[in-house]
């Protein structure tokens, strides 16, 4: 936390956790999906469920899904803008159990794909993504982050990290995850510096890598 976290951020009100944080969660979901969103269902839990209209949490999430940053005045009209763009959205309240009081789940659908993203707004506009589909994760969006889906086989993670090293990128934090042995693995890599498009392109074209998503710091 620096002085600009104290005198800042510049944001659309009224609440750093319920508005700015929610916009960031929507934006993260958009970046993780990276496909044209046709339909989206948003499930509010806890305090979000109680006050999502009064805090503009609904407008903030949709704004984030449309790519707006937390200081974008278009957040105020995001629902109308989404309708105009033909994005179908629905809000629900839900009890997700054993999660932070400010948690929401976003289910995104495109023509032939879907993704579920769960995250919490943990105070002062800071967020954490806790689940992507059925995989538990931890993404806070403060550093340039790569989310890579790859084949679960010996040496794969080593290959990925050496590619990053060749591009002179230092890894700050890294999580290695999978649901079933030998099936698909995934890793979340937080970097000290932003990767360039050539690196992302290179990773995407590697044999055993299924998908690469880059999330710039929020």
């Amino acid at each position: 936390m620096g002085i600009f976290d104290v005198m800042g951020p510049i944001m659309i009100g009224p609440s750093s956790s319920h508005t700015a944080g929610a916009a960031k969660l929507g934006r993260m979901a958009r970046l993780l999906f990276q496909r044209e969103i046709e339909e989206v269902d948003i499930y509010f839990h806890g305090s979000f469920a109680d006050t999502y209209q009064g805090h503009g949490t609904d407008r903030a999430v949709i704004g984030g899904l449309l790519g707006y940053l937390p200081d974008d005045v278009r957040i105020r009209n995001s629902l109308e803008n989404a309708e105009e763009l033909g994005l179908k959205f629905k809000f629900h309240t839900v009890n997700l159990r054993n999660v932070h009081p400010n948690t929401l789940m976003i289910e995104l659908k495109s023509k032939d794909n879907s993704l579920s993203v769960t995250g919490s707004s943990v105070g002062g506009g800071s967020i954490v993504i806790t689940r992507i589909d059925n995989t538990k994760v931890r993404m806070i969006g403060q550093l340039p982050t790569l989310w890579i889906l790859h084949k679960d086989r010996p040496g794969e993670v080593g290959i990925i990290t050496s590619v990053l090293g060749n591009y002179r990128l230092n890894i700050a934090y890294m999580q290695v995850l999978r649901n079933k042995k030998g099936d698909q693995g995934s890793c979340i890599i937080e970097l000290d510096h932003k990767p360039n498009k050539y690196l992302i392109n290179y990773l995407e074209n590697m044999d055993d890598i299924k998908q690469v998503r880059y999330l710039p710091p929020l």
Binding site: P9, G13, G124, G125
Partner: peptide, 11 residues
């Protein structure tokens, strides 16, 4: 009213 402000120290 969902206008733009500086959250200092908070919104």
């Amino acid at each position: 009213g969902m206008g733009k402000i500086v959250a200092g120290p908070t919104a």
